[in-house]
Design a protein around this nucleic acid. Sequence first.
DNA 1: GTGGTCTAGACCACA
DNA 2: GTGGTCTAGACCACA
Lengths: 120, 120, 120, 120
Amino acid sequence: MFTLNPRDAKPIYLQIKEQYIRFIVSGVLGAGEKLPSVRQLATQLSINPNTIQRAYAELEAEGYCYSQAGRGSFVAQRTDWDTSRRDALIAQLQSTAQALRSLGMSEAELTALLSKREEV
Amino acid sequence: MFTLNPRDAKPIYLQIKEQYIRFIVSGVLGAGEKLPSVRQLATQLSINPNTIQRAYAELEAEGYCYSQAGRGSFVAQRTDWDTSRRDALIAQLQSTAQALRSLGMSEAELTALLSKREEV
Amino acid sequence: MFTLNPRDAKPIYLQIKEQYIRFIVSGVLGAGEKLPSVRQLATQLSINPNTIQRAYAELEAEGYCYSQAGRGSFVAQRTDWDTSRRDALIAQLQSTAQALRSLGMSEAELTALLSKREEV
Amino acid sequence: MFTLNPRDAKPIYLQIKEQYIRFIVSGVLGAGEKLPSVRQLATQLSINPNTIQRAYAELEAEGYCYSQAGRGSFVAQRTDWDTSRRDALIAQLQSTAQALRSLGMSEAELTALLSKREEV
DNA sequence: GTGGTCTAGACCACA
DNA sequence: GTGGTCTAGACCACA
């Protein structure tokens, strides 16, 4: 399920966190579903448990999951993270678009860019 | 002219670099204009000259300015940085748009976002 | 393994960088191999860690290696540096050839030079 | 006659020196011809005389010209600089070719590169 | 004066 | 332990 890229400059805890966000946002992991325990995932990925712990802590801080002592961590309701994330992305989209305008890009060109999905 | 936040997770040299990019891209600083000297800016911002040096070195590496021992640093011609910057922004725009799509945003909504200029 | 000449006009960080490039390009250091840590190499060469840091940072910027806080620095895949290096060398070959032509060397002589491998 | 590029990272004294080498090597300036005086050239280029002085000193050290106290500087005989310069360029050509071979370039490709004159 | 390199040494994030 | 950032301050090349 997880792909960790050791060559990436991105810290491992962030790679884990961002993959979880992708899974949760896309619905691969539904609200209420249980995340693997810190120890379990650490063993599975051959990684230090501290690293997993940090990823989980940030996910929880941003409302993507919640943890219950003794039971584990679970995917949160969409309402807990939806709005703030959306707002952040919208702000970023608009500021990037603004930067492209200041390089002389027209509205038509900007709109055209959106229809071309990036490949990666 | 400069706003530095030493508590920011973003390194100081990057804060300086990015502010200069904004000034240059927006035309506040025109091609050929002299940047303040490394030492001068260091004193003014109460920052170590090495930190300024690093910001200037990266600006030069990315084509935003050029520098000469004994003379100073100067804003480069637009052609020197135009394309690379454009490409970076386009990639960012598309990846942000993709993230919004995975939150369920439609193409129509995305396009609508572009017409609303952000205020900042 | 390393030869440093502190009297050389060429900065130390560049001497280190260029030697690493030679090792990586020639295959002495293979993709994925770990470079010595910044501190380790600094002690071994009796050089300031900042100087090593700079060499490593430039190697990474040019795609010869990648580094991760907490883990170390590693030799990159060949595909990451191949093209850019090739282009640089081609430019250098052609400009040197041009200089020799302006000394009156004929095309036949130039071609002949290529078949004689230099010994070093 | 002279083109100085203030945007070039190359020091001005070097730009002057290299342009003289080009003139001398190509025969634009013939053996025995008088170079402009340091002061004269400094005024003409609006440049510090020290800068010119340094260019002339290096040209003389490398055998491209000679100076006579009270009379001025004159272009040297070709035999004074020809061989050493030629040798240096040949060595560089061969070592660059060798580097390209280690990237997998064939002899045929190398030879082909020579026939394509670089444009600049 | 101006940029570039370097040493010495501190502190932080990450694994 | 490992890389990344930063301060303080020195010395060099160049104009």
